[in-house]
Simulated scan of single mutants.
Amino acid sequence: MTLEGNILTPEGWFRGELTIRQGRIAGVSGTPVDPEENDALRIIPGFIDLHVHGGGGADFMEGNDALAVLARTHARFGTTSLLGTSMTASREALIHAFRDAGRVVAAPPAQAADILGIHLEGPFISPDMLGAQPPHARPGTIEAFDELDALAPIRVITIAPEIEGHMALIETLAARGVRVQLGHTAATHDQCVDALQAGARGFTHLYNAMSGLHHRKAGVVGAALAHGEYAELIADLVHVEKGALLAARRAIPHLYMVTDATAAAGMPEGEYRLGEHRVFKQGNSVRLADGGLAGSALTMDVALRNLAGLGLSLAEASQRLSLWPARYLGLSNRGVLTPGYRADIVTLSSRLDVEQVWVAGQTVID
């Protein structure tokens, strides 16, 4: 199979052909081009979303086939790889959701994004920084982690480092290769620095549900801006306004975007589930009954257009939705369009609307 258009490669944009063979990129050829000078398709790497609670009406915590439904839903919007993401819940509810998620991971659904594993967002978080998380926060142990990891592979975990015992847990999990993120936390700047030295690598939905930046109390946000190499940010321009996003972009070398999407993603306005909560999609936001933000209805194609609207080039926006999350997770076979890599590909119109999506060379939408 051969695609023709403006191809985003590690060396820049080329007008030419990209060949797919046996699920991988077999070759890229062409001549340098400015994609703004023509209306040909923009061919870019598929999006990688490391924080997805739901989509298509399905919530990860429901279990059953919810993970498959959300993976199919987000694939329609250009996401070719993702992490299903849990909510803070009781042990029994987490075991139910993880058992069913493990079954889906073991038998991947067709016409869906590749499910890389799970992002465990809670319950090892601060009860004082729940955000929209249900009130089941508790200290973490390696035994509790292992019980869930045995059911479905945990690739990323969100932890509040100030909780007693968590610094040692961070060190243990980091040594295993788990990506530890600081989030839903009231930690001080210095506690975050200690956590980074213990092996934490990132920050969960930067700015949201964490101690903010004050000039005499730097907090988690200050630690991220001063010391972070990686951090995720919800790019719906509701959770974080444009000035704060641009400040983080300038400070954090590998800032990448996530959706934090709920069951409302890809669905009309109405009432949906988010863990134990009922949430309501209203316009481009998802809220609790009291009006507080509760995840999002964002899809990655909208995130791309939001970044472009802030003045980022399409090449940089693509990096922040594909390359940096791939590098953060240690994925060496996706995130760029180059021979030998997985054929995870999105084509866009000149208006940046999704036209076609391939996951490992298989057409998802056309």
Rank of each mutant, 00 (worst) to 15 (best):
A174G: 07
A113F: 02
F145Y: 04
I142N: 02
P134H: 03
A113S: 14
P109Q: 09
A112M: 08
M167E: 13
A200D: 06
H189Q: 11
A137S: 13
E121S: 07
A200S: 07
Q197S: 07
R179M: 14
H205D: 12
T158N: 13
D146E: 15
L130F: 07
E171V: 06
G140M: 09
P127E: 07
I154H: 03
I118F: 00
P139G: 04
G202N: 11
D146K: 10
G202A: 15
R201F: 04
D190P: 01
E162R: 07
L196M: 11
F203R: 03
F124C: 10
P134A: 15
E171Y: 01
D194V: 04
V180I: 14
I157K: 12
A132M: 07
L173T: 11
D194N: 05
Q191I: 15
G199F: 01
V156G: 05
T158E: 14
A113K: 04
E147L: 15
E121K: 12
H205S: 14
A160I: 09
Q191L: 07
E143M: 06
D128K: 15
L169D: 05
V180R: 05
T185L: 09
L196A: 03
M129Q: 15
I115A: 02
I170F: 05
E143H: 02
D194M: 10
T204D: 13
G199E: 07
V156S: 11
L151V: 13
P108Q: 04
L173Q: 06
P109K: 13
Q197M: 13
A110V: 06
D190L: 10
Q111I: 05
A150E: 08
A112N: 00
G183Q: 13
I170A: 13
H136W: 07
V156W: 01
H184N: 13
M129P: 06
D128C: 04
A107Y: 00
T158D: 12
V178W: 01
A152Q: 03
V193G: 00
G199T: 11
R179K: 15
G140S: 09
P127N: 05
L116V: 11
A174L: 14
R138M: 12
I118N: 02
I157F: 04
G122H: 05
G117L: 11
V180S: 10
V180H: 01
R176C: 08
H205W: 03
L151F: 01
G183D: 09
V193M: 02
V193R: 06
G165Q: 11
T158H: 01
L116I: 12
A198Y: 02
A200M: 08
D194E: 14
A174Y: 00
P161A: 12
A195K: 06
A174R: 07
